[in-house]
């Protein structure tokens, strides 16, 4: 790549803009986890361990999603000391859909709507008391939510 004065100035300005307006930080978004292309990689990058299946993690999601562009999902848990709740779609190009950092002041129930490119196993992972727990469910998609 050729670097001339104009593009150099432009990139310096971009850097200055990011520094001047930093994102509000709780932890920081694990960008690498969101770019991971397999669920295992995304979970390892985001949470650093392998979750164990638990019946204390509950996920409400349709068995058959008519429209993959809008799949409502609600994750809740009976576990105490919930630190985060994440939703991962195995067959999406980048499986990690969303992650929520909870605080002692939030009730451990989160609803969100996600996109699914095709039928897939969907996983809900809860980090509580330093450990990881998960539940998963297969969701059939009749119309994909990616592509045009």
């Amino acid at each position: 790549m050729k670097i001339d004065r104009r593009s150099m100035l432009r990139s310096l300005l971009a850097v200055a803009a990011t520094l001047a307006f930093p994102k509000i930080l709780f932890a920081a978004r694990a960008d690498k986890a969101f770019e991971a292309t397999t669920s295992d990689e995304a979970i390892a990058e985001l949470l650093g361990a392998v979750p164990t299946a638990s019946d204390k993690v509950h996920m409400k999601i349709p068995d058959i999603a008519e429209n993959g562009a809008v799949v409502p999902v609600t994750v809740s848990t009976d576990l105490e000391d919930v630190e985060s709740i994440s939703v991962v779609v195995d067959n999406n190009p980048t499986p990690l859909a969303a992650s929520f950092d909870m605080s002692p002041k939030t009730v451990a129930v989160i609803s969100v709507r996600i996109k699914m490119g095709q039928s897939s196993i969907v996983r809900a992972i809860v980090k509580a008391g330093g450990n990881l727990y998960s539940t998963s469910k297969e969701v059939k998609v009749t119309i994909g939510g990616c592509g045009g």
Binding site: I24, F26, A27, R29, A30, F34, A69, V70, V71, T74, V89, N92, T94, L96, A97, A98, S99, F100, D101, M102, S103, P104, K105, T106, V107, V109, I110, S111, V112, R113, I114, K115, M116, G145
Partner: peptide, 30 residues
């Protein structure tokens, strides 16, 4: 970011797989 009386109580990090015009529901204690 969700704030309750100026205190951060919930932070969501999203990828590209959250639906268009996102909807979220959550509850805050106290």
């Amino acid at each position: 970011t969700i704030e309750h009386n100026g205190e951060q109580v919930l932070v969501a990090y999203w990828g590209t797989a959250v639906s268009k015009n996102p909807y979220i529901a959550f509850s805050i204690k106290g």
